[in-house]
């Protein structure tokens, strides 16, 4: 019964809850900011990579993109965060939260780029041919035909990526930013608690609720996008 008692203590104690709310805010803002950067960066990298693979003049861009994706995917995100927080943005007064958003944005951009590239290449080349045969430019075909179909194809993968990103943000506690995970640790060390298990469970519930909500939204988008396939 101790478990429920402790749980009740946490939810009824305003100062504990305040720590959790603050942590939740950090987790959400880092995840949201990073996913926006990641999606935009990923789309740019994916398009540049495909365009430069065809055009020899901008071959160096493809190499640049490969290095970016390779380095980001080949090193742990915790290490990337340390480098950003303790070396590159080790500027007095520079908000850690922004550092975290940039780090996770750049990190998820690499993964998003790869899945988007696969998504773009999975669109039947006949679609492009039909568009070009009507006199549309390559850009117009991309914009109106290929990218919309590619996005529809990759919504499930991108959704997974966003869920993974949300949970990965728990690493920010390692550089001292108070997110949900760190909040649980602080509460666990509080004077009325001296127990980590229950606060961690509370944090877990928060994460679960967010992930379920996110899953619901992704499913809804997927359903909407699949409209064109329904018979």
């Amino acid at each position: 019964m101790n478990f429920f008692k402790d749980m009740f203590t946490i939810f009824s104690n305003e100062s504990y809850m305040q720590i959790f709310w603050k942590g939740l805010g950090t987790t959400l803002s880092v995840a949201l900011g990073a996913s926006i950067i990641g999606l935009v960066l990923g789309l740019i990298v994916a398009v540049v990579k495909i365009a430069s693979a065809k055009n020899k003049k901008i071959k160096f861009l493809e190499i640049l993109c490969d290095i970016y994706v390779g380095v980001i995917r080949g090193t742990p995100v915790a290490l990337q965060l340390f480098i950003m927080a303790f070396v590159i943005f080790a500027i007095r007064g520079f908000p850690l939260e922004v550092t975290a958003i940039i780090t996770f944005g750049i990190n998820s951009g690499a993964y998003v780029a790869e899945s988007l590239r696969a998504g773009i290449q999975s669109v039947d080349y006949g679609q492009t041919e039909a568009g070009r045969s009507l006199g549309l430019s390559g850009m117009q075909v991309y914009q109106s035909i290929v990218i919309p179909q590619a996005i529809k194809n990759v919504i499930p993968t991108i959704g997974n990526e966003l869920i993974a990103l949300l949970k990965e943000t728990s690493i920010v506690s390692m550089v001292g930013l108070i997110d949900l995970t760190f909040a649980a640790k602080i509460v666990g060390a509080g004077d009325k608690m001296a127990d980590y298990f229950v606060p961690m469970m509370v944090a877990a519930i928060f994460y679960l609720v967010i992930v379920y909500a996110l899953t619901f939204v992704i499913k809804a988008i997927e359903r909407r996008m699949r409209k064109s396939e329904r018979r």
Binding site: D124, G126, Q127, E129, A130, L134, S144, P148, K152, S228
Partner: peptide, 27 residues
């Protein structure tokens, strides 16, 4: 010049993400 040369393909290649009327109107 391609605007003046219509092409019809073996596999139709209608734009899957657009309605029939939008397929015709796009270009």
């Amino acid at each position: 010049h391609r605007q003046k040369m219509g092409m019809v393909f073996q596999h139709f290649n209608l734009f899957n993400n657009l309605t029939i009327i939008d397929n015709i109107m796009l270009a």
